[in-house]
Amino acid sequence: MASEITYAEVKFKNESNSSGTYSDSATVPKVKPTPHLSKPGRPSLLFTSLMTLFLLLAIAFLAAFIFYFQKYSQLFEEKKAIRDLTHKELNCTKDNPPMDDKVWSCCPKDWKPFSSHCYFTGTGSASWRESKENCSSMGAHLMVIHSQEEQDFITKILDSQAAYYIGLSDPGRRQWRWVDHTPYNESATFWHPGEPSSDNEQCVIINHRDSGWGWNDIVCSGEQKSVCQMKKIYL
């Protein structure tokens, strides 16, 4: 009797889906993720912000330095002009009340005090420009008149037979300007009747006529006396 052989098909199923013990990835090594690193040399946002702030502060500091340096230079020049005058004899009066911590108000010898200024009338004659430069060399400027009281004060010490340049001129189109850059106030002017009279006469003198003291425009090249003005020196 022939023996019977029975064949049975046996299939093995991968159980990795259920157990998780084996997987297709078991044959492929896993690559561990690495933390992201910023590129070397590339500044962070915080660093950029700090650098921008630092730059703005540096610019602000530089601007402030330039501003105060200019102010200091101007103050230094003013004090230098005062020092150049203080080696001369000063005539001082005690202020009442005192100005800040200053007790004495002074004018150089031969200068006349009025209000907060000193005034000097030279004996020589020169053009308006030369007169302006002469006043500047003494730390002063040609006289500026803004009130009747100031006009009356100066005319009392002037020679009625002479004429004196003051610090008023016309650079063009009858736009009168004071040398100290204070505003020209038409309501506080003291022109003689009929003056100013000519567009070609661009500088101003103060002189005496039958009607009294007043201003007259003349050509700037004419040689006249002058009145210089400076602030009082406080000690």
Rank of each mutant, 00 (worst) to 15 (best):
M1E: 06
M1C: 13
A2T: 09
E4R: 07
S19C: 01
D24T: 08
S25I: 04
V28I: 09
V31F: 09
P33I: 02
P35H: 11
S38P: 14
K39R: 07
P40G: 08
G41E: 08
F47K: 11
S49Q: 07
M51F: 12
T52M: 15
F54D: 13
L56D: 11
L57H: 07
A58S: 11
A58H: 09
A60C: 14
L62T: 14
F67S: 15
Y68C: 15
Y68R: 09
Q70L: 13
Y72Q: 12
S73P: 07
E78K: 06
I82F: 00
I82N: 01
D84Q: 08
T86Y: 00
T86W: 03
H87Y: 06
K88S: 15
L90F: 07
N91Y: 13
N91L: 14
N91V: 14
C92Y: 11
K94H: 13
D95K: 07
D100K: 11
D101F: 12
W104K: 10
W104G: 07
S105Q: 02
C107Q: 08
K109I: 08
D110S: 10
F114M: 02
Y119W: 06
F120I: 03
A126P: 04
A126N: 09
A126E: 14
W128S: 09
R129A: 15
E130Q: 14
M138G: 05
M143V: 03
V144K: 00
H146K: 00
S147W: 03
T155V: 13
K156I: 05
S160L: 10
Y165W: 13
Y165I: 00
I166M: 12
G167R: 00
L168H: 02
P171N: 03
P171D: 04
G172L: 03
R174E: 11
R174P: 01
R177S: 14
V179E: 15
V179N: 07
N185C: 02
N185G: 04
N185R: 07
N185Q: 05
E186K: 04
S187G: 00
T189G: 04
F190Y: 14
W191D: 02
P196S: 06
N200I: 08
Q202M: 11
C203M: 06
I205Y: 02
I206M: 01
H208R: 02
N216I: 10
D217F: 11
I218M: 15
C220L: 09
S226A: 15
C228L: 06
C228R: 04
C228Q: 03
C228I: 01
I233N: 02
